[in-house]
């Protein structure tokens, strides 16, 4: 198995290259549609014009869409028997190579000394999430999430008396509106929200971030959450924060939510904010063949 994983070096390197330079189409389609809603000649409309040009330029060339190539996170679903350790080793090699060819910025910093690491590796870098499944395929979902948007994420513990947020869906909605209002344009709006309801602190954030791996155009299987997503999308856009926080009609491009059970004493709500440059792609390895989606 570990020999087979060595063969993943090139596909993983290509996955990183594509993810850093080629934004998923659902996002630029949403942005093209959003541009139409902004006032002609406004700063908001101009932001969209520049962002859409930037997307095309990056797609056509080799330069990272955003210079903050982010926290490098691999979400891996794998069959029984795949060595996680072997996967980590080959993925780390691919990360170092992608950094050497400028598809990733040297973005790993020693938190105590402040020293920057040249190859993007180091303690806790990159991030791996492994999940075994019953299928034969290996599914690698790569997320490159920059710091500007990561920093405006938020977690709430309900009830929140200050917000008037109780332990129900109305309370969750209050938290989401609060997070978006506090973020203003600082997460490089228009953003995409991943919302985690329930779990413990860590699980709630994890769940929120996993929602960001969904397509903007999918529909939540859970009817309650599907309605919640639609309502939050509409309500948050009524805040008028707009692209880059310049004011305007589009503050968010999408809202995705997931739910987990909680223990009776806790009720966490987590909001993961992804900037418009939401770089994520999948590598699917099936019967020795690889495909990047």
């Amino acid at each position: 198995m570990s020999d087979a994983l060595t063969d993943l070096y090139e596909p993983l390197l290509e996955l990183i290259r594509r993810t850093s330079t080629d934004l998923p189409r659902d996002i630029d389609e949403a942005m093209t549609a959003a541009r139409e809603k902004e006032e002609p000649g406004s700063a908001g409309e101009n932001v969209f014009n520049i962002l859409l040009q930037n997307i095309e330029m990056s797609r056509a060339g080799t330069s990272p869409l955003c210079q903050d190539t982010g926290m490098i996170s691999f979400y891996v679903h794998h069959p029984s028997g795949m060595s996680q350790l072997a996967f980590k080793r080959v993925a780390e090699r691919a990360v170092a190579a992608a950094t050497a060819e400028n598809r990733l910025r040297p973005n790993s910093v020693d938190s105590l000394s402040g020293e920057s690491v040249d190859d993007n590796l180091g303690a806790g870098m990159p991030v791996f999430h492994f999940e075994e499944w019953e299928m034969d395929e290996i599914d690698v979902h790569l997320l490159l999430k920059g710091g500007g948007c990561e920093n405006v994420g938020a977690q709430f513990s309900l009830p929140d008396v200050g917000l008037g947020a109780d332990r129900d869906l109305a309370g969750v909605k209050r938290c989401v509106l609060e997070a978006v209002h506090l973020a203003q344009g600082r997460g490089c709006a228009p953003g995409i929200l991943g919302i985690g309801i329930g779990g413990d602190r860590m699980g709630s954030y994890e769940l929120a971030k996993e929602q960001l791996l969904r397509s903007l155009t999918d529909t939540n299987q859970d009817r309650v959450l599907a309605d919640f997503e639609d309502e939050m999308f509409e309500r948050c856009n009524e805040l008028g924060i707009g692209p880059m926080g310049f004011g305007g009609k589009t503050t968010l491009l999408g809202v995705k939510a997931g739910v987990r059970n909680r223990i009776p004493a806790s009720y966490f709500v987590s909001v993961a904010y992804a900037c418009w440059a939401h770089r994520h792609r999948r590598l699917v390895v099936s019967k020795g063949k690889t495909e990047i989606i």
């Binding site: 932001v47 520049i50 962002l51 040009q53 930037n54 330029m57 990056s58 060339g61 330069s63 990272p64 869409l65 955003c66 210079q67 910025r105 040297p106 973005n107 910093v109 020293e115 920057s116 920059g146 500007g148 344009g185 490089c188 880059m244 310049f246 900037c275 418009w276 440059a277």
Partner: peptide, 28 residues
Amino acid sequence: HAIGGAATFLARSVERVDGVVHRDFGVA
């Protein structure tokens, strides 16, 4: 306020790099 995330677009406006002070701080 520059356009956040428009990194490729904005890099085209960097005509020249004349030099660097304290490269030892890291590229970024």
